[in-house]
Nucleic acid binder design. Structure first.
Lengths: 199, 199
DNA sequence: CAGAAATTACACTGGTGAGTGTATTTTTCG
DNA sequence: CGAAAAATACACTCACCAGTGTAATTTCTG
């Protein structure tokens, strides 16, 4: 890796760390430069302004959740097995500490930069659509009775997120609910499939 | 109402509006004073500092969700009816525009003022506990099979929030899912009860 | 190695905003 | 009414910070 690229990466990483610790507005470009072990001028050579640097961070956040590929419906595999795998895939992305750091920085800036919501919208609806497709396939196969696949997808993802993403994002510790991710996913898949099981 | 109290309320309201529109750090005390039709000095006489003013806003947020009283379990009422009522109660609080404005301001400041998460934690766990109690009662009554009431409560609230709170909070419009609140609640209650129905 | 490209140190500008001091006017209340 | 409490106008301090200019140094690349 070239020295220049290394610098760029260092700066971006330092920016996320500092933004995460102090918030966007309370982090000066001088501090980012310091933390990255770079000079302020270099920071400005790579990212024209503080805003552009933030934009770069938003892009990094988006790239992260692109690892979620299609949730393929397998006609010859048991539904619980398939849905558990999907659930764990989703939670693995969203419960990653690095992903949450990025998300915190971006979400806390949403008031000031509302354009971000369009981007987030895009991504969350991508996951939802993929999951709804899976539901529709299972419905067509008569192994599930899901009259509204989009609504059902929303429900499923909602349960996962409110277990493994939102509380951790806001550093809220859950009292009285101390279970592993896999336990929660299993339990949720079981309940969900029973709730949508054909008559 | 005394002139002094009126001023205080005006200032607080103006602060929420401005913070909501521009974010905490990009809102100057001068602007708040202007928007409230008060002098800067009066602002400082009521709230010693910008931070203290923010604190007052947090307290207002907390008071709002205290309207949720016990979710009483009624042995002689149908479960769907009871749970729908609970679901709608919850969503009525969280989908109120004023509540969301407050929540946006507070959440966007969480990075800088992590103490807030303890407060939020308190509140979300309060709702969860109340709902878990309801579940436990229905389980004891053998009308539901809920081995883990806390987990089930988390699931139920999670579905509601990810329909009616998070997207609206972040101004994310949901593509491909255009249903009324009551429809979503009804559908969710039906699925949930079927998923936890006793064998 | 030689020239180009990137990095650095550092000083500097211009703007903004939190919080204060003060003298004056308005509101409250016995 | 009359005195105390609150509100106002306004000027002012002090600190912080985004972004720039420049000249010297280091790193890349042919």
């Amino acid at each position: 890796m070239k020295h220049s690229d290394r610098k760029r990466a260092d700066i971006l990483a330092a920016a996320v760390t500092e933004f995460r610790a102090y918030g966007y507005d309370n982090t000066s470009m001088d501090r980012i430069a310091d933390a990255a072990g770079a000079s302020k001028r270099t920071v400005y050579n790579h990212f024209g302004s503080k805003d552009q640097m933030f934009e770069a961070i938003v892009h990094e956040l988006m790239d992260r959740s692109d690892v979620l590929s299609d949730f393929r419906y397998e006609p010859d595999q048991p539904l619980p097995k398939q849905l558990k795998s999907i659930g764990n895939q989703i939670l693995n992305v969203f419960s990653d500490e690095g992903y949450r750091d990025l998300a915190r920085v971006v979400l806390s800036r949403l008031i000031v930069v509302p354009q971000c919501s369009a981007i987030i919208s895009e991504h969350s609806s991508r996951i939802n659509t993929m999951l709804a497709d899976w539901m529709r396939a299972a419905h067509r196969d008569q192994r599930l009775n899901v009259p509204r696949p989009e609504l059902a997808a929303e429900q499923f993802v909602g349960m996962l997120m409110s277990f493994g993403f939102w509380p951790a994002l806001f550093c809220v510790q859950k009292k009285g609910l101390d279970v592993k991710q896999s336990t929660f996913v299993n339990q949720t898949v079981t309940m969900f499939l029973k709730g949508y099981q054909p008559d």
